[in-house]
């Protein structure tokens, strides 16, 4: 691939992805026509509340959707190769090598009965052809680069001998070992305390930059996202409602849902007696209303919203929103 085409084509391009779960009580359209692009070296935040489908997008990219879930349609193009149609053994090669993952609970990705060293070594054995001494050097190097001291001794330790924050560092080290081009991090700091969280976020950002990789940060926490990512994609009920550069989304979103999410966060600089809240609850995803999924909770909803489903369209600056009446494009403030 030439330099030219690399700069033109995104590293990852998700097109009309649909991942549905066929459960006893109906079809859960967890991801429904989601599209986005991710360029080389970019960090994207995938934001939404529980039930928004953000984790399912991550799992779909990794090819880790188990029955009753299924990728029903769409494309997941990694460098032009469609992962949605790739066979399982090809996906297995890609996972870890090309795409690495970091989960909320580090214990799920670390094997409790093996030492850290063995798990790191296995990763390199699978995905590189380094000899044993080189692999060992690389493991020690990697542990040091994620801020774990006495790396040589720590290779012999088991996961339970680390604290939560340290475990997440180990997971990051393992994820980075094979120089992946894409990292999918699913709520990587949700289980951690704030002081540890800020350490881990800084570490992730630096590691991604050092390796020239791209990252998708899946999270419910807008504050976390705003400190780390370049652009944001907001999901609601399995669909993209807004996307754009992080500055535009945070400072002046055009979709009422994004606006509501941001305003729900208490602002220490302008304390108000009441928080602005999004009324109601997320609708049952097995039984979505006609038209816009958000209209029952939306302060701007009009008759049109009940009839026609809004399509994602550019609103202003870098923003795209799926809304008939986006904020800041008409005559309102």
């Amino acid at each position: 691939m030439t330099m030219q085409s690399e700069s033109r084509d995104p590293l990852l391009s998700v097109r009309d992805l649909r991942t549905w779960f066929h459960t006893f009580s109906g079809v859960v359209k967890a991801v429904n026509d989601v599209s986005f692009d991710l360029a080389q070296g970019e960090i994207m935040g995938l934001v939404g509340e529980s039930g928004g489908g953000k984790s399912v997008v991550g799992f779909s990219i990794l090819g880790l959707i188990d029955p009753p879930g299924r990728i029903e349609g769409g494309q997941i193009l990694l460098d032009g190769e469609d992962l949605a149609k790739a066979p399982e053994d090809r996906l297995r090669k890609i996972r870890g090598r090309e795409i690495a993952m970091i989960f909320q609970d580090p214990m799920t990705s670390l094997n409790p009965v093996h030492t850290i060293g063995r798990q790191m070594d296995e990763m390199l054995r699978l995905h590189t052809d380094m000899d044993e001494a080189a692999r060992r050097r690389r493991c020690i190097e990697m542990l040091e680069s994620v801020g774990i001291s006495q790396a040589e001794d720590r290779l012999r330790a088991y996961p339970h001998q680390f604290s939560g924050g340290m475990r997440q560092r180990v997971v990051i080290a393992i994820a980075m070992l094979a120089h992946p081009r894409l990292i999918i991090a699913d709520e990587p700091t949700t289980a951690l305390d704030v002081t540890i969280q800020s350490q881990i976020l800084k570490l992730m950002k630096r590691q991604v930059a050092d390796h020239g990789a791209s990252m998708i940060l899946v999270t419910h926490d807008l504050a976390v996202v705003s400190e780390v990512v370049d652009k944001i994609t907001v999901l609601y009920c399995g669909q993209v409602v807004e996307r754009g550069d992080v500055r535009d989304v945070i400072s002046a979103p055009s979709h009422p849902y994004t606006r509501g999410l941001i305003d729900s966060i208490p602002n220490p600089d302008h304390r108000q007696p009441r928080l602005s809240q999004i009324p109601g609850t997320v609708p049952d995803i097995r039984n979505l209303p006609k038209g816009c999924n958000f209209r029952d909770r939306c302060p701007r909803a009009q008759a049109l919203c009940a009839q026609e489903e809004p399509k994602l369209a550019p609103t202003r600056q870098s923003l795209f929103a799926a809304c008939h009446f986006p904020i800041g494009t008409g005559g309102d403030a």
């Binding site: 604290s163 924050g165 340290m166 704030v194 002081t195 540890i196 969280q197 800020s198 350490q199 976020l201 926490d221 807008l222 504050a223 976390v224 705003s226 400190e227 945070i250 941001i262 966060i265 602002n267 220490p268 600089d269």
Partner: peptide, 22 residues
């Protein structure tokens, strides 16, 4: 704690005290 708390409004006065260790 105050400096580590993530914020969507980065205008806040920020004294950086980064804690190490656990």
């Amino acid at each position: 704690l105050l400096s580590a708390a993530p914020s969507i409004r980065p205008s806040r006065m920020t004294e950086e005290i980064e804690l190490t260790g656990e």
